[in-house]
Design a protein around this nucleic acid. Structure first.
Lengths: 213, 213
DNA sequence: GTCTATACAGTGATAGAC
DNA sequence: GTCTATCACTGTATAGAC
């Protein structure tokens, strides 16, 4: 009797923690930290405020849990196994397209906005995010560039620097325009077009024998 | 008597509005919108809360006034008159260095953070900022690239695209690391080194006959 | 216009019953 | 663990005297 009640409550507790995190994620990413109240989160999650405080010590801890969780989702993103170091153009276009599609996804944009907006108040956010997102992407790009240089399809001396420059070319100004809400994902030239332009420029700088001319 | 008093008060009013704006700027840029109270702004400006509300209809209007004002300060920045379209490397290095120094200045970083953080709540911020900052810089770069292409020191077909790519190369990842508070202005390779690397890559892609080899 | 004082709403957080 | 009810506190905004 007490055991049954305990078991049911444990399951219920896990599920409620989940609803709280889901509601908090949605509201924080949408409206920022300061504009969201614990009351609103509790209401959206269908629980009482006291329940929220039973699971999370306070608003800041709940915020940290949400952001850390979202950052970790990026850690299990794509692999680079199927890239061909012998074919730089095709591989870079594929790498760049996945990179840019991730950057322009609504969740990633919202995460960027809130982290940049709150990194002053929560300094730890900066490093958590950097390691979960940008640094990891740069590492993958650098690994491919190193392999491609070894395979002879690229002429690269400083792979880390080249990786940063490739990432910068792909990102261009389009990410900023999206962050500022000047463009929606559909507007403007498509992702593929932007990436192709970036790959063109990158290969003119680092390609072994320019492909055209 | 009443006139003297009125005149003194007008002057005093203008000066108080100025103190309020200055205090609000400092606090908003430092802590964001939600974390700053009207009470704290009034205290920092040395006036009463009622005086703040006499000059600005509310917190949002005061915030908008501060941000619009900061954005306009960027509009009167540097000129491109002294650049030499015949010497692409030197001119691009100078252009890039001023661009990056501006981007990494504490005020610009704080402005970026708060605008990105609050653009969800204040959609107008995005366009105001874009026109005051990035768009203007891109226009200057594009104008120089066009002149350099005409002068024969660069091979450029789409000057707008090339300008975006140059800006992206210069900005690289260093702006993001600063925004995330992972680096201070002093850390890492100096601005000049970063810009030189960006100019190198840009000239390998767009230079008329690579300068080396 | 400017101040002091205050009304009012909404916040984060908790106590006690179940 | 979960709820209802409530706490103390802060921030927004206004009234009224000067």
């Amino acid at each position: 009797m007490m055991i049954e009640r305990g078991a049911r409550n444990e399951a219920s507790a896990a599920s409620k923690a989940e609803s709280i995190l889901a509601a908090a994620k949605r509201m924080f990413l949408e409206s920022g930290f300061g504009a969201v109240s614990m009351d609103a989160i509790a209401r959206a999650a269908g629980v009482s405020k006291a329940t929220v405080y039973a699971h999370f010590a306070g608003k800041e801890e709940l915020f940290g849990a949400v952001i850390a969780r979202e950052c970790e989702r990026y850690l299990s993103e794509f692999s680079t196994g199927e890239l061909d170091p012998g074919n730089a153009r095709t591989s870079l276009a594929m790498l760049g397209r996945r990179f840019l599609e991730l950057l322009l996804s609504p969740d990633a944009l919202a995460l960027h906005r809130i982290i940049l907006g709150e990194v002053g108040r929560f300094p730890a956010l900066g490093e958590v995010f950097w390691r979960a997102g940008p640094e990891r992407n740069l590492g993958q790009i650098e690994a491919f560039l190193t392999a491609a240089a070894r395979a002879g399809s690229l002429e690269i001396t400083d792979a880390r620097l080249a990786a940063e420059q490739f990432a910068a070319l792909v990102r261009g100004e389009v990410q900023l325009r999206h962050l500022l809400r000047l463009e929606q994902n559909a507007d403007g030239p498509g992702v593929a077009t932007l990436v192709d332009a970036a790959v063109d420029t990158f290969l003119r700088a680092f390609g072994r024998r320019g492909p055209q001319r």
